[in-house]
Simulated assay, not measured.
Amino acid sequence: MTVFWILAPLMVIAALGLLLVRNAVHAALCLAVVMIALAMMYASLDAPFLFAVQIIVYTGAIMMLFLFVLMLVGVDTSEAIKETIGGQRWIAAILGGVFVLVAVIAIGQSVSVAVVGLDAANSNGNPYGLAALLFGKYVLAFEFTAALLITATLGAMVLAHRESLTPQLSQGELAAERMREYAATGRHPGNAPTPGVFARHNAVDTPALLPDGTPVELSISPSIVARGQVRDGYDDDIDDVTRQLEHDDSRDDSGFGGEK
């Protein structure tokens, strides 16, 4: 009971934060607080299996997936505030109020009634007792829940799917387009060389060098070029390499550097 009265206010505050905060990352963190508190309640009720599943699967895997999606989509993108379905806010408010009322009544009844039967249910272990309930007395509700999750997954796939307005180009067509761009603008059709190629270091602010020692400015990130942070000391390296090659050529010409 003590754990419940400590964690329940935190869960309510985090749930309200999930609804009221404007930043999507902050909302995800509030949801993580709710899930972790729920897992601790499972642990206080002698349900170690549900505690582990709540932490590993929901908080560890699903929440991280939410955060990855938020990072990929972008947390600073503007959202449309125009309603596509008229009156949906009033309907959501009424349904939310009904849900809160039902949740308060259910939690109040569960707290006021003494917990009976936990020892008998967990006599063979918590996973066994949970499996006996899920695939026995509540198998129909379990199947409906599974169907609901599958429907939600399919709905997310349909909502995330975007129709392609232009036909997808094949590999040959992409190569031909790059060659046409090369003929028109002179842009190299291949990949840009990596920084530090043919140089004495692999710093990202050092241009790649062609075999003749010419620096390739396209190998530097545009952000580094825009900030003016391109390294200027590679000319000394070119001079050192040139002097070394000339020295090796003179040794070869004199017959001391190797067989002629």
Rank of each mutant, 00 (worst) to 15 (best):
M1N: 03
V3E: 15
W5I: 00
L7F: 08
P9Y: 06
A14C: 05
L19G: 09
V21G: 03
R22V: 02
R22K: 12
V25E: 09
A27D: 01
V34K: 07
A37C: 15
M40Q: 13
Y42F: 11
V57K: 04
I62Q: 05
L65H: 02
F66L: 02
L67K: 04
V69H: 13
A80T: 10
K82L: 05
T84W: 02
G86W: 09
A92N: 11
G96V: 00
G96E: 05
V98F: 15
V98R: 07
V102D: 12
S110R: 08
V113E: 11
G117W: 12
D119I: 04
A121Y: 00
P127Y: 02
Y128C: 05
L130E: 04
G136R: 01
K137R: 03
F142A: 13
F142H: 05
A146L: 06
T151R: 13
A152T: 07
V158I: 15
Q171Y: 15
Q171D: 15
E181N: 11
Y182R: 01
T185E: 14
G190I: 13
F198W: 05
D205N: 15
D205W: 10
D205A: 14
T206Y: 00
L210N: 09
L210T: 11
P211V: 13
S219C: 05
S223E: 13
S223T: 12
S223R: 06
R227D: 14
V230A: 12
R231P: 00
D235Q: 15
R251V: 06
G255I: 07
K260V: 02
